[in-house]
Simulated scan of single mutants.
Amino acid sequence: MLEIAKAAAKAAGDYLQERFLEQLVPDEELHNDVKLPEDKESEKRIIEVLHRHFPAHSIFSEEIGLLERDAEYLWIVDPLDGTNNYFIGYPYFSVSIALQHKNELVLGVVYNPVAGQMFWAEQGGGAFLNGKRISINQRADQTKAVGTYIRGRHSVTKEQELAFTEPFVMQTKRLMRNIAPALDWCLLANGWLDYIIMQRSSIMDVAAGIVIAKEAGATITNWQGEPYRHQAFRVEELASLVASNGILHETIRGLIKE
């Protein structure tokens, strides 16, 4: 299943890479989002690979919604993580594919075609980047910590975002807003980032990244400090999470002001 997920991610990612330097024409441009035909074509290529090899499995993908078959296996797909980045020519985007089996996340693949980065992990098997095992860093100095902020597209206002993120901006080295959540979790997994703050965002966007970060040793909790436990995926469910290298976890969590 892992090899098929990687093949599906590469097929979609290579197509996105081919289209990336073109002048893209959106189907629809919204206040907080943009709809691209490339998103749908990427999704089509992923679903074709997954259904060819696993015709009985269910798939949830961002554009098409739920293709319900065998509920025991559910593929959670974001065919273009970072659509807005992709649209404006900013090379920070990925293809994200996760597998839920019996309500547990067991596999994650995130492919960044621009950098040629294929991240993957299986439950209990560690996390990898292009075949090399990866792990979180050991940074302990809050003033040198670099993090990223992920917020729900429609569940958090810009005013709420400004108020919430101020302590992280002021008390850590840098807080980034990359707008490609799955890839952010992979940067944490490889020790490039020190922490992630997620505010009322869909698990769909980050399911694969969570598997990879967890297998790389990241500490993941809710805002109250309770360890993250994946629930059966529901698109309408939003999560507020903190992830870190563990050493900085309580310090970062202490900056949260609800």
Rank of each mutant, 00 (worst) to 15 (best):
R229L: 13
A9S: 10
I4F: 02
D39H: 09
A56C: 08
P91L: 06
R177A: 10
V95F: 01
D70Q: 09
L30K: 15
A208M: 06
K158V: 06
F233T: 06
T83P: 07
Q117G: 04
K173S: 09
G209E: 08
L50Q: 05
V106M: 02
C186F: 01
S96D: 08
T165E: 10
I247H: 12
V146T: 12
V34R: 03
V110N: 06
T83V: 02
P181E: 04
E18G: 11
I247S: 07
M1W: 09
W75I: 01
R153Y: 05
A213Q: 07
V206S: 15
Q160S: 11
D70A: 10
Y86Q: 05
S201H: 11
D33K: 11
G225M: 05
F20C: 04
A239F: 12
K35P: 05
N245Q: 06
S240P: 01
A140T: 10
D205L: 13
I179G: 03
A127F: 02
N222F: 10
Y149F: 14
K6Y: 00
S94W: 01
T219I: 13
Y228A: 02
A182Q: 04
G147D: 08
L107K: 01
I196C: 00
K44M: 10
F87N: 07
R229Q: 14
G209N: 03
V110R: 05
A7N: 14
G116S: 03
A232H: 12
I179V: 11
V110D: 08
P26V: 04
D141M: 10
L99Y: 00
K214E: 14
G191N: 01
D33R: 03
A180P: 00
M176Y: 07
Y15G: 03
H57S: 15
A182T: 06
E62C: 05
